[in-house]
């Protein structure tokens, strides 16, 4: 069974601009268009490559999502627990993603919500409570929720585990939908691992 899983998982990170990727050094630049990093993640004794996509945050670039979100396995919605607006916008991002990516089964498409920057000011400047965030996640079809501090490295690995786990859900489902006849063919897994078909 595990051999059937896809080795490469495409993950789209969305959220209000400036809250997303600040963790990567002071040299980083605002993303223009789109770019992605890859990260190896071990999940259930298997190695996966997470392709983590960052797209230009500003609203006027959202129409590009059609191309960039295509084939995504998971969408991670990030907000800043210290900025209410970023939380309020989660729903916009989610809907925008569903419009642009138009996944085959929008109801069950795997999202993960991350509340970031819990470290800021020792948590004193926090304006979005965990409870509030979890409530929203529950209302949107039990979206998994995790809180992180990218700066301090808190929960980051856990976040990737959650992301991988959820991304794999689509992977398996899609596999069954698209390739029912080739599941047991030995070469299929090889094909998938090299094919990067997402």
């Amino acid at each position: 069974m595990p051999s059937r899983r896809r080795a490469l998982l495409k993950v789209i990170i969305l959220g209000d601009s400036g809250y997303v990727n600040k963790k990567f050094s002071n040299q980083y630049k605002a993303t223009i268009g789109a770019d992605f990093l890859t990260k190896e993640v071990q999940f259930e004794d298997r190695l996966f490559t997470l392709q983590i996509w960052d797209t230009a945050g500003q609203e006027r670039f959202q129409s590009l999502g059609v191309a960039f979100y295509r084939g995504a396995d998971c969408c991670v919605l990030v907000y800043d627990v210290n900025v209410m607006k970023s939380f309020d916008n989660l729903n916009n991002w989610r809907e925008e993603f569903l419009i642009q990516a138009s996944p085959s089964d929008p109801e069950n498409f795997p999202f993960v919500v991350i509340g970031n920057k819990i470290d800021v000011d020792g948590g004193n400047s926090r304006v979005v409570s965990e409870k509030k965030a979890r409530a929203w996640c529950a209302s949107k079809g039990n979206i998994p929720y995790i809180e992180t501090s990218a700066k301090e490295g808190i929960n980051i690995e856990d976040a990737f585990q959650v992301i991988a786990k959820n991304a794999l859900k689509t992977g398996e489902e899609e596999e069954i939908i698209y390739l029912p006849d080739t599941i047991d063919v030995g070469s299929s897994s090889q094909q998938r691992s090299s094919g990067c078909e997402c």
């Binding site: 268009g33 789109a34 960039f68």
Partner: peptide, 16 residues
Amino acid sequence: LNYFFCFRWILIQFKR
């Protein structure tokens, strides 16, 4: 064919 992979090139004139 959407050439979005050239988006950055054009948007900021190859600045990056």
